[in-house]
C-alpha cells in the first residue's frame, strides 16, 4: 500500500544519495550555530534543486523569521522548519472540491459524462506515455476509456498511442498525419458518448509555449471540448519533465493562459533531478502537482501527495516507511 509506494518513491528520489535533506544534514553537521554561512549553504542547496530564486528567497525568509521568532538556536531544527515551509507551499489550497467524486489519482472526473482530460506540454516531456499509463490505470478501475490521438504532428505519435491502446485494451481515435487535432478530439468525444465511455484522454502534440499559432491550436481543442461537454475538459494536465529548470515557470504560465492548466504531471523523477521547480510553480502560480512519474512501468505514475513527497525528500536516513 502506501508503504510500498512510499519506499519506491524514496528509492527513486534518493537514488543518488544526495537528496535535498542529505545535503542539508551534512551542512548542518558542519555548523554549531545558525549563522549567515548556514543560510547561504541552504540557499545553495535549494537553488541546485531548481527551486528557483523567488521561492528560495521566500523559503529562506520564512526560515529566518521563524528562527528569530521562536529563538531557535540548534541547527538540527532547521530541516524540520524547512520541510514545514515547503509543505505549506505544496499543499496550500489543495483540498478536494466538495461534492465531486475524485477519480483515480485524485483527478477531477466531473460527473463522468464522459470526463475529459486533456494532456499538454512542451516536446519530449512524456505526454503520450503519461496518457498511456493513465489509460491503464483508469481501465484497471473499471472505467471505460477512449484515447484521442490529437498529436497529429510528430511522425508516428499516433502509432505510439495506438501501441498503448492495444496494450491496455483501450479504443484509440486517430486521424491521419497532419489532421486537425480538434477534429480528433471531437471525434473521440462523439465516440465516447456513443460507446458510453467514462473518460476521454486527449493526447496533444508537444509544443513550445512560445509558438503563438500552436498555442492557438491548443485553445481550439479546448474550445471544441468545452462546447461538446459543459464543464469539460475536467482536467488539463501539464506534463513537466523533472529535469526542466526555470523555464518550467514560463511553460506553466503560458499553458495556463491558453487552456487553464489544472494540475501538473511531473515526469522522470527517477533520474537525479529533484523537480524543485514544482515548488516554484506552486508558490508563484498556484498550480498544484497532481501526478508524478518515478519510472517507466505502468504503476510508476502515482498521485502526488505533498506530505509523502516531502517525507521522501527529508527522511532518507530512516527506513520506517510503514
Amino acid at each position: 500500500m502506501i508503504g510500498g509506494f512510499f519506499s519506491r518513491l524514496k528509492d527513486a528520489l534518493t537514488k543518488t544519495r544526495d537528496g535535498i535533506v542529505h545535503k542539508v544534514q551534512s551542512v548542518i553537521r558542519r555548523h554549531e550555530a545558525i549563522d549567515e554561512d548556514l543560510y547561504e549553504e541552504i540557499e545553495a542547496i535549494l537553488l541546485q534543486a531548481d527551486v528557483g530564486i523567488e521561492a528560495t528567497t521566500h523559503l529562506l525568509g520564512r526560515l529566518r523569521e521563524r528562527v528569530r521568532e521562536v529563538r531557535v538556536t540548534d541547527p538540527e531544527e532547521v530541516p524540520g522548519i524547512l520541510k514545514e515551509e515547503m509543505g505549506e507551499i505544496l499543499s496550500a489550497g489543495s483540498e478536494n472540491p466538495p461534492g465531486l467524486p475524485a477519480g483515480p489519482h485524485g483527478l477531477e472526473l466531473g460527473g463522468l459524462q464522459p470526463a475529459v482530460i486533456m494532456v499538454v506540454g512542451v516536446n519530449g516531456t512524456g505526454k503520450t506515455t503519461t496518457v498511456g499509463k493513465l489509460a491503464a490505470r483508469f481501465k484497471g478501475r473499471g472505467l471505460k476509456v477512449v484515447l484521442a490521438a490529437a498529436d497529429t504532428f510528430r511522425a508516428a505519435a499516433s502509432e505510439q498511442l495506438s501501441v498503448w491502446g492495444k496494450q491496455t485494451g483501450v479504443d484509440v481515435v486517430r486521424h491521419g498525419e497532419g489532421a486537425d487535432p480538434s477534429a480528433v478530439a471531437y471525434d473521440a468525444i462523439k465516440a465516447a458518448q456513443a460507446r458510453s465511455a467514462d473518460v476521454v484522454l486527449i493526447d496533444t502534440a508537444g509544443r513550445l509555449h512560445t509558438k503563438t499559432n500552436l498555442m492557438e491550436e491548443l485553445r481550439k481543442i479546448h474550445r471544441v471540448v468545452a462546447r461538446e461537454i459543459p464543464g469539460a475538459p475536467h482536467e488539463v494536465l501539464l506534463v513537466l519533465d523533472a529535469t526542466t529548470g526555470q523555464n518550467a515557470m514560463q511553460q506553466a504560465a503560458q499553458f495556463s493562459k491558453a487552456v487553464g492548466v489544472t494540475g501538473i504531471a511531473l515526469t522522470k523523477l527517477d533520474g537525479t533531478a529533484k523537480g524543485g521547480i514544482v515548488i516554484a510553480i506552486k508558490h508563484t502560480l498556484g498550480i498544484p502537482v497532481k501526478l508524478i512519474g518515478i519510472g517507466e512501468g505502468i504503476d510508476d505514475l502515482q498521485a502526488f501527495e505533498p506530505q509523502e513527497f516531502l517525507d521522501a525528500i527529508f527522511n532518507n536516513q530512516s527506513n520506517n516507511g510503514s
Partner: peptide, 12 residues
C-alpha cells in the same frame, strides 16, 4: 541536451 534543462544538466 534540452535547452530547458535545469541544475541537473551537470550531473547528466
Amino acid at each position: 541536451v534540452d535547452a530547458m534543462t535545469g541544475q541537473d544538466a551537470v550531473t547528466v
